[in-house]
Amino acid sequence: MSITNLLENWSDFRQQHPSDERPHREYKWAMSIDLDSCTGCNACSVACYAENNLPVVGKEKFAHGHSHHWIRIERYWDNDGREFADQGAQFLPMLCQHCESAPCETVCPVGATNHTADGLNSQVYNRCVGSRYCNANCPYKARYFNWYDYPTTDNVWPEPMNQQLNPDVTVRGKGVMEKCTFCVQRLTVAKSNARSAGRSVLDGEVQTACQQVCPTGAISFGNLVDPLAKVGKQWMTQQVELNKDKQAKDAEEKAVKLRGYRILEELRTYPSVMYLEQLRESAI
């Protein structure tokens, strides 16, 4: 980026709200998570550890809040003072929401976290200086900092456990921020294969590790631009629009409701993850 380029195309480099005037042309990776199917089993989280070389920090560091779970299962109770949690729990897999107008991106002093052309919120480890401003500004607290140098920490990857490390994913050293990447290493391979074949990535051709493992299929992932993609159809039927911070469907009270919503949408982050509300039977 030369200075002239920087000055002339400043408005393109600036972070902006997503809008219909500047649509994603080829890819816009997005997810939807059905909370009525999610059982809270944690398989997605473990799969993420396996795929993305997440360090196991151990009890002491976990106690200090140094854990690395790019996708974490939150468990909420809705007792309203009743004696028992008699409608069960509410489980919520929380991962980086890959916001279209990501609060983390504007504040990074060095531009280590960026938006990619296919709608990912990317993290460039080599560029990160570790100011942690991105985490401070992330309303979902889905970013995880390398508080220690895990590759050299005892019992994180002792011989021969280091042989399990995925060579497609960087093993992060101390002092950099990291977070869910939507398994960008898989996306890159799929895109490159599709490009060689002269087409774009088909729906279902690439899966994130969490989606792949999920026993109830609660997670869908795909290209929102692709009209055949399941995830796009889900967003469409749920009337959740990526580029809106208030959904039209929420304005009116209808007898039959739609389940789709995005978390903390009112902060105008335009998340790329849509959740489908959990359901509970009223007859029992």
Partner: peptide, 14 residues
Amino acid sequence: GRKIAVRMSSNKVN
């Protein structure tokens, strides 16, 4: 009170 994990009655959806 924040809208994070949301639940509704199943007879309200199709």
